[in-house]
């Protein structure tokens, strides 16, 4: 579905990605994990076109989109909730969501998808008329995810969707993402909440210092016992 081939990229002369090769298979849920500053967000920015690779290729549904400008990518079926959300602070919650349905294929079903997003995040329905810049941190995160869904994508690219969400909502949202994947959506997700993410993933990649250092199905990827210990060491 989506493939990165030997991608190198960076910002203003500092190289961040050294050699990233990964693939998100159709209908599967792929997660990308790794420590702070490994280059996960940068990898996602390469996919949604905000960062241009200096070497390598991005291939989506058989088409080389390495040079496709960012604004054309949603139309091709790539929807992203980038790091830092990037909402339009002066538009309302609903305005932001509706803008997500801007690609042609998504416009006709916008009302329907909006209802779905409001079911997913009932809080947003209550805050529909409020300017996005005034929402709480978690509410803004919900809008970011909801806006990505609004474009009826064939691949959903999420950068740390659980960031800033209340625990109850985190479990709910992972269940929902899993449901979407069951309904046939391809998902590529960066997540620090590695245990939760790997539990619902089909395939995982681990990044370090701009390289992919490990990959495989979740059970091979990480020693779940180890991980469990790391998480549950509550005194």
């Amino acid at each position: 579905m989506l493939r990165l081939d030997g991608v190198q990229a960076g910002y203003d002369g500092t190289q961040v990605l050294w050699d990233v090769t990964l693939a998100a298979e159709k209908g599967a849920m792929t997660v990308l994990i790794g420590p702070n500053g490994a280059g996960k967000s940068t990898t996602l920015k390469v996919i949604n076109g905000l960062v241009r690779p200096t070497r390598g290729h991005v291939v989506f549904q058989g088409e080389d989109i390495t040079r496709t400008p960012a604004h054309e990518r949603p139309g091709k079926g790539i929807a992203a909730c980038p790091e830092g959300r990037r909402l339009f602070p002066l538009l309302t919650t609903e305005g932001n969501l509706r803008l997500g349905a801007y690609p042609k294929g998504a416009r006709s079903s916008a009302d329907e998808t909006l209802t779905y997003v409001y079911e997913l995040f009932p809080r947003l329905r209550e805050r529909a008329r409020v300017k996005a810049g005034r929402l709480s941190g978690g509410e803004q995160q919900m809008v970011g995810i909801g806006r990505a869904l609004m474009s009826k994508p064939s691949i959903l690219v999420l950068d740390e969707p659980s960031l800033g969400l209340a625990p109850k909502l985190v479990s709910e949202i992972f269940v929902k993402i899993r449901e979407l994947r069951e309904a046939g959506l391809t998902v590529l997700m960066v997540e620090q909440n590695a245990y939760a993410a790997l539990r619902i993933a089909d395939f995982g990649y681990v990044m370090q210092n701009g390289h992919v250092v490990k990959s495989g199905p979740p059970n091979q990827l990480l020693d779940l016992e180890e991980l469990r210990k790391a998480y549950f060491a509550i005194p």
């Binding site: 790794g34 420590p35 702070n36």
Partner: peptide, 8 residues
């Protein structure tokens, strides 16, 4: 503390 891996 948001957005840190378990080790971090």
């Amino acid at each position: 503390f948001a957005g840190l891996s378990p080790d971090e």
